[in-house]
Amino acid sequence: MKQIKWIFVVYAILAAASIMGIGIAIAEKSIIGALGCIMAVILIMGMGFKTKRKMRENGEL
């Protein structure tokens, strides 16, 4: 049975929240909010992929 990697669950929830934030910022007509959320999605996704690569290299996945 596979173990849940909780760090990836956290990254997924944060990325989903940031994507929702983009929609909310657009609805509120906030360009700064939308840009901030887009940057957050890029940062969170990048951290997730970096963590996955590091775990693969260490044989943890």
Rank of each mutant, 00 (worst) to 15 (best):
M47S: 10
S18V: 04
M1K: 05
K29I: 11
G46I: 01
G59F: 02
G46N: 02
I13L: 04
I38V: 13
C37S: 12
A15N: 05
R53S: 14
M45R: 13
R53E: 10
A15C: 13
L35R: 03
A34Y: 04
A27D: 14
K54V: 08
R56L: 09
I42P: 08
I38Q: 02
A16P: 00
M55W: 06
K29V: 08
G48L: 11
A25E: 02
I22A: 08
F8S: 05
K29D: 08
A40L: 12
K29H: 09
M45T: 09
G23T: 07
M20R: 06
I31N: 04
M55S: 04
R56F: 13
G36H: 01
I26G: 01
M47D: 06
A15M: 08
M39D: 10
A15P: 05
G46K: 02
I4E: 04
M47N: 08
M45F: 15
A16Y: 12
A25R: 01
L43V: 07
I31P: 01
K2Y: 14
Y11P: 02
M45C: 12
S18G: 06
S30E: 01
I22T: 03
G23Q: 03
R56Y: 03
L61Y: 12
I31Y: 13
K52C: 08
I24C: 15
G33R: 02
M55P: 03
V9G: 00
R56H: 13
I13P: 00
A34N: 09
G46M: 03
G33S: 00
G59L: 05
F8T: 10
V41I: 06
Q3T: 15
E28Q: 06
K29S: 09
K2P: 11
R53Q: 14
K52T: 00
F8N: 01
M45D: 13
A27F: 15
M1S: 05
K50F: 07
I31L: 12
A16S: 15
G36P: 00
A12L: 05
I31C: 04
F49A: 07
W6L: 15
V10T: 13
I13Q: 08
E28C: 14
A16C: 15
A27C: 09
M1F: 09
R53C: 04
E57D: 14
A25P: 05
I22F: 05
I13T: 04
M1I: 07
K50R: 15
K2N: 13
L14A: 11
